[in-house]
Design a protein around this nucleic acid. Structure first.
Ligand SMILES: [Mn+2]
Ligand SMILES: [Mn+2]
Length: 287
DNA sequence: GCTGCTG
DNA sequence: CAGCAGCAACGCCCT
DNA sequence: AGGGCG
């Protein structure tokens, strides 16, 4: 154990943070401990969506801007309290399950700068409990363009009977999440997403379902493939590996409508907003 | 960040 | 003993 | 069979 290792207590579990002052975001000057503090502050909100979900983490051992890799299997050296479960179509990947703050912080110690999850949650590990529309802007477009597209999608999606909530992706896009009253199969959920998206394509110009780049040089991709089995979406309140440590931020539709730049939500501003604001996704969660 | 393999 | 590789996944679409 | 796509 490195000399400068610090022990953090999270809900009664001790988590070792090695090199707590290691800089993970050089441009923003944020250390590993800064990230520990961010996730501790965001946890009461993050857990409302993330609790019980299988994780995939994106790790940056040399900080944002350095080499990175995805990891979904539980590391061999994980502590005994870290929950995991064999999932996937072949049930062969040992996914980390997000069921406590200590899990998040133990993964931060491994230089995880992004937390992604599948659309399923305990105890229904085979059935998604939401529908996801990942709106991916074309290169060179501005945030107001993808913002206005999301706003135009809302009444169409609601017309199919879904409630829908928006968040920034933390990078350039917008995610629309539709909670399901009861979990449905991946096949049902994907077919539903495709039906809705096909209507969006008919009603709004400039968007496509095709992943092929040549089909969409300047079109918005409605990425419904997040709804395929065990595909991933970045969690609400997850940081991203951007220079300013931007965050995937859940918003009210009113606040999204006023937003000119998604980059204003970062590790610093989000904690301030949470301190005084209410959770803009309050209505997402059943009472 | 850490383990396990390879030279 | 030190240096270094590995650390994800789905299905669709195309060659 | 293999690569690109997100
Ligand atoms: Mn290293
Ligand atoms: Mn996206």
């Amino acid at each position: 154990m490195p000399k400068e290792t610090q022990i953090i207590e999270a809900e009664g579990i001790a988590v070792e943070i090695s090199h707590p002052e290691k800089i993970l975001y050089p441009e923003a000057g944020l250390s590993k401990m800064d990230l520990v503090r961010y996730y501790t502050a965001a946890w009461p909100y993050l857990k409302k969506f993330g609790m019980g979900r299988p994780l995939a983490i994106k790790r940056y051992p040399h900080g944002a801007g350095g080499d990175s890799f995805f990891q979904k299997n539980k590391p061999h050296n994980a502590p005994e309290w870290l929950t995991s479960r064999l999932l996937g179509l072949e049930k062969k990947a040992d996914y980390i399950i997000l069921d406590k703050l200590a899990t998040l912080l133990w993964l931060v110690n491994l230089d995880s700068l992004e937390f992604h999850s599948a659309l399923v949650a305990a105890p229904n590990y085979d059935k998604p409990n939401l529908l996801a529309f990942d709106l991916d802007p074309p290169p060179g477009s501005t945030f107001p363009e993808i913002r206005d597209f999301a706003l135009a999608c809302r009444p169409i999606i609601e017309g199919f009977g879904y409630r829908c909530f928006a968040k920034t992706s933390g990078k350039r896009g917008v995610h629309i999440c539709c909670p399901l009253p009861a979990p449905q199969s991946f096949e049902q959920v994907f077919n539903a997403a495709k039906e809705v998206a096909t209507t969006i394509i008919e009603k709004i110009p400039g968007c496509t379902l095709s992943l092929k780049k040549e089909d969409r040089p300047d079109k918005i991709l409605i990425d419904i493939y997040r709804n395929h089995p065990y595909q991933l979406m970045v969690l609400p309140y997850s940081t991203r590996a951007t220079p300013n440590a931007s965050v995937s931020m859940p918003l009210s539709w009113e606040e999204l409508g006023r937003l000119e730049d998604a980059g204003v939500f970062d590790v610093g501003t989000v904690v301030e907003k949470l301190k005084k604001g209410k959770d803009e996704w309050e209505e997402y969660y059943p009472k």
